[in-house]
Design a protein around this nucleic acid. Structure first.
Ligand SMILES: [Mn+2]
Ligand SMILES: [Mn+2]
Ligand SMILES: [Mn+2]
Ligand SMILES: [Mn+2]
Lengths: 228, 228
DNA sequence: ACATATTTTTAGATTAATCTAAAAATATTT
DNA sequence: AAATATTTTTAGATTAATCTAAAAATATGT
């Protein structure tokens, strides 16, 4: 007897966060199925808490869940998760473009703002901002209909000597990486050209905006996604 | 052993809402002490739930509470309540001025936005909006230091024939009143002049912006606050 | 295939926020 | 000053979200 809920059911912020976590995990693995432990790690909770929540989300028909078999989002769950990303990223855009926050300062605030419940609000915000397609970290902003703009991006770490591209996104974006990039004056839109590859530690010498040369570690170069 | 909490203690949205309710009740009665039942009515909860919460807020040293004697806000509680009003009203201003919502559409959204925790956010929003002093309903926006702009306003119902003023605030502002005023094209800034007082039902004939004449009921005229 | 390791679920508590019903305290009326 | 009414608190449940510890299921390694 699954409680198939009305289309505009009322979810708690916690339920929403779990759906986002499952979405994120299935995106980054390419595999639609997420495991209990992976969700627990993503959410910083005990595995037992995840099991509880999976039961509840399953009751509400937002996910498909079988004991020991992992979970994947159902139609409704995916819709909710996508709209959360839309809200999160539009708010981040607002915070950076209008309120002049730095790109490493907006995530936690957007984590709260994304749970404010109002379709009207988010659509008006979208229009007010000029319907931006990417957030301050280069992540695509889902459209009102749920579609997500895609692009073909290449990690800096895979380029050969002489090749160049424009920084367009980040693989992952912990605040520490963003603060580092801010320090070395690299941001979305920066041109990066490979000067030399160092086989020993996979670090790379690059020319920034045809102006100055710096060294980037393997860890950094794997995280910088370029449009070639 | 009251747990005197650190200055930036973490409150739940529910705790914050109780503090706002107590603040509102003490403002509108002129009496700083609020009763359990009054709070229950304001919060739409059972009196028993209020008693529970009062105990908790008292533990945190936000209110002064003695069984059967009612409560009043302490320094910290008053500060929290004032900052909530600041946030609520700044967000309402944003929603109306920037996102072009109508004044009767913004309250519920602001009820959620006001709980987003970030001093930095609200101060940047304040600057972005040009440090407005009043919200779309004419209510004063507390300053960052907690002071609240005051004005001397007169209810339309107390004016004599011939007197006039500019609509500057509302006594209370249920959505129904705001929708009515929207329909008859009266808003903050509208000039209102008394043409005739009707003793029978205390209704009043008024001239709007020196252009058109309408009738307003006693209930409406008591709610319109004018700057003479 | 069996033993061991890992993952996941269950069992049982805890805390915040809520409720109803009953008891206790306070206020009002006769 | 009683009797009555009203207000407030207590007692006992409930639900969401969390935890730890133990049990059960599944996966891995020899
Ligand atoms: Mn973010
Ligand atoms: Mn982002
Ligand atoms: Mn409001
Ligand atoms: Mn208002």
């Amino acid at each position: 007897m699954s409680k198939v809920q009305s289309l505009n059911m009322r979810l708690t912020a916690t339920e929403e966060n779990y759906l986002k976590a499952i979405f994120k995990l299935s995106e980054e693995n390419g595999n639609p199925t997420a495991t209990t432990n992976a969700i627990a790690a993503e959410m910083n909770t005990a595995a037992a808490s995840v099991t509880d929540m999976l039961r509840r989300l399953s009751e509400k028909d937002l996910i498909h869940y079988e004991k020991y078999k992992g979970v994947h989002l159902k139609e409704q769950g995916r819709k909710v998760a996508t709209m959360l990303l839309r809200k999160h990223r539009l708010w981040e855009y607002f915070l950076v473009e209008k309120l002049k926050f730095e790109w490493d300062e907006v995530h936690d605030i957007a984590e709260e703002l994304e749970h404010v419940r109002s379709e009207e609000l988010i659509n008006r915000l979208d229009n007010y901002l000029g319907q931006p397609r990417f957030d301050p970290h280069g992540d695509p902003i889902p459209n009102a209909d749920g579609t997500i703009p895609t692009r073909q991006l290449t990690p800096l770490s895979t380029l050969k000597t002489g090749q160049h591209g424009v920084l367009t996104g980040l693989q992952e974006h912990p605040d520490s990486l963003m603060r580092y990039l801010k320090k070395v004056n690299i941001s979305i839109g920066t041109k990066i050209q490979v000067l030399e590859l160092h086989e020993f530690d996979e670090s790379v010498s690059v020319r920034i905006d045809d102006e100055r040369d710096i060294e980037l570690s393997e860890k950094v170069s794997k995280n910088l996604l370029l449009k070639i």
